[in-house]
């Protein structure tokens, strides 16, 4: 089932969230006619909350330069945690620097929940020109379901700024989540 659109909006936080959450937990237990967990329980729950609210590491940014300049017009898929689950067929650079492909998600794919591509463009010397995070709307995958998974999901990512005619590109898959 898809996430309701409203769930994507930031949710409100009280001025004292940890205290409220702890109070809520205690209230639930008390009203349920059950026991109140001991002090150690509250501490562990508090620890879990503290960990959860830690700041995440920033998403990896596109490399400022390629290890070696790439031939003009080439597009390379960077190795990553999800490259065994997705294949970008017919991957190519088209006019205007568009990175185009047909995505096959062939592993663990009863429903596609999240897919994000990090696309970066480089000049002939291998220096970063620009990059963009492309977020796929899972609804767009619905018509591409088959017995083999999500097959042939169109990908067309335009550079946010003009890129040279001899540019190359890389694609990374930082986010992929299936039902």
């Amino acid at each position: 089932m898809r996430t309701p659109a409203t769930a994507r909006t930031p949710v409100r936080r009280t001025s004292a969230p940890l205290a409220v959450a702890g109070l809520a937990g205690a209230l639930v237990v008390a009203l349920a006619g059950c026991s109140t967990p001991d002090a150690a329980t509250v501490d562990v729950a508090g620890q879990a909350r503290e960990v959860a609210l830690s700041s995440p590491a920033p998403a990896p940014a596109a490399a400022e330069a390629l290890d070696a300049p790439a031939p003009a017009g080439t597009v390379v898929v960077l190795d990553g945690p999800f490259t065994d689950r997705i294949e970008l067929r017919e991957l190519r650079l088209e006019e205007g620097g568009h990175v185009v492909a047909a995505a096959d998600v062939t592993k663990d794919v009863s429903e596609l929940l999240e897919l994000e591509l990090e696309v970066a463009w480089y000049d002939a010397a291998g220096a970063l020109v620009t990059s963009v995070r492309h977020v796929v709307d899972p609804e767009d995958a619905e018509e591409h379901h088959s017995a083999a998974g999500v097959i042939g999901l169109p990908v067309d990512v335009a550079p946010p700024v003009p890129v040279p005619a001899d540019a190359s590109a890389t694609v990374a898959v930082p986010v992929l989540v299936n039902e």
């Binding site: 996430t3 769930a7 994507r8 909006t9 930031p10 949710v11 409100r12 936080r13 009280t14 969230p17 960990v51 959860a52 609210l53 830690s54 700041s55 995440p56 590491a57 920033p58 998403a59 990896p60 945690p81 929940l113 999240e114 994000e116 995070r133 977020v135 930082p174 986010v175 989540v177």
Partner: peptide, 24 residues
């Protein structure tokens, strides 16, 4: 906030926020 925030990378689209803040 969202089950899609499974890691290893945080993104606003897949994770949303808790109380307006990114989370692990």
């Amino acid at each position: 906030a969202l089950r899609g925030c499974q890691g290893p990378t945080y993104s606003l689209e897949s994770c949303g926020t808790l109380g307006g803040q990114p989370y692990l």
